[in-house]
Computed example of a mutant assay.
Amino acid sequence: MRTNWTGSAGDPVWIRPDWSTDRVRGIFSFREGGVSDAPYQSLNVGYHVGDDAAAVTENRRRCAEKIGATLEDLVVPEQVHGAGVAVVTEAHRGRGSTPAFPPIPGVDGVVSNVPGLTLTIMAADCVPMLFYDATAGVIGAAHSGWRGTVSHISREVLRTMSEAFSSRPEDVDVWLGPSIRRCCYEVDERVAQPVAESFGHGPLLPRHARPGKYLLSLQACIRMDLQSAGVSEEHIHDVGVCTACHTHVLYSHRAEHGRTGRLLGAIRLA
């Protein structure tokens, strides 16, 4: 796990992947530093959760500014809890950035080699992932809930980067952002069975005195997928922050019973 914090709960908090180059910028947002009212206070970036749209737009603008982008640079996938990945070009600039521009339909991942485009993911327990291949000059972003994880979206991102841009998995650096972790993520057999079929029982911890209940590590599953695809262990960075444990600074759909905002993961080539 690698964590690079700036700020505090009372002053906007961010995690920035520490890529040792000026060619790429990325962030994972926390919930402080925005303009939304409760229960979305304050840096909610999700339009679909019931928050005031003008507040969300301002919050997204602030997030974009943090990595040198504008609101119009954002590109947002629809996020349907699948494993679809789209190649993003200049023609997609601004898709999903505001309600006036629909997101990239039917996908949970996006990849691009266009400087200035800001690939954006929203999450509130699911794992936001950022991908960067410095050799090929390619970036990617993906949203991985349990369905996307068992559908191997992380491998699909790597495959799409390879097919579209000749990227090699061994050259790709991947960051897993704030998300619900095994300490808080209880699942039943409906989820545990497909997880076990895809990854074995290692990521699942049976709960004591709770038959049919397990604690699940999505991060362990994703790490297994990435390594099996050829990403080296030292190129996989897990920030190690649990959304459900820290609702004072993060949004958690589960811990907050579905009424909460969304965090942002974003990456752009300079």
Rank of each mutant, 00 (worst) to 15 (best):
V24M: 08
R16L: 03
G68C: 07
D173C: 13
R23A: 14
G116Q: 02
T118F: 01
R268N: 11
T21I: 04
R16E: 13
S97Q: 11
W146C: 10
V174M: 02
R2N: 11
H248L: 06
S166F: 12
A100H: 11
P39T: 04
I139S: 06
Q41C: 10
V24H: 06
G96W: 00
R31M: 07
V76C: 14
E32A: 14
S29E: 01
Y185C: 09
S20K: 13
R62S: 06
D52T: 13
V174D: 00
C245T: 02
V110I: 15
K66L: 14
P12I: 00
H81D: 15
V231D: 01
A64M: 12
H257K: 15
Y185M: 13
R31C: 01
I27M: 09
V187Q: 07
M1S: 09
G46W: 04
S217Y: 07
G145E: 11
V138D: 06
I236D: 00
G84V: 10
V75C: 13
P102I: 08
A124R: 07
E90D: 15
S144P: 05
L250T: 12
I67F: 08
D225Q: 03
E65S: 13
R23I: 05
Q41R: 15
D11L: 09
A244D: 15
V13F: 05
G96V: 01
T120Q: 06
G50A: 07
P77Y: 13
R259P: 03
A229R: 10
Y132R: 11
S167K: 02
A220M: 08
P178W: 06
R61C: 03
L43D: 00
N59F: 00
I121S: 03
A134Y: 05
S29T: 13
C245Y: 03
D225H: 01
T149M: 13
T243M: 01
L71Q: 09
Y47D: 05
R2H: 10
G148T: 06
S42Y: 00
A91P: 08
C242N: 05
L205Y: 12
C184Q: 11
S252I: 00
L204Y: 11
I15P: 00
A141P: 02
H246M: 05
L263A: 03
E58S: 10
L117N: 06
N59I: 00
R93N: 10
P211Q: 10
G10F: 02
T160V: 15
G109T: 07
T98L: 02
R190T: 14
A266T: 03
E156N: 14
T120D: 03
M161K: 07
K213H: 14
T6W: 02
L226P: 01
R95E: 13
S166T: 12
M1R: 09
D73R: 12
A136W: 09
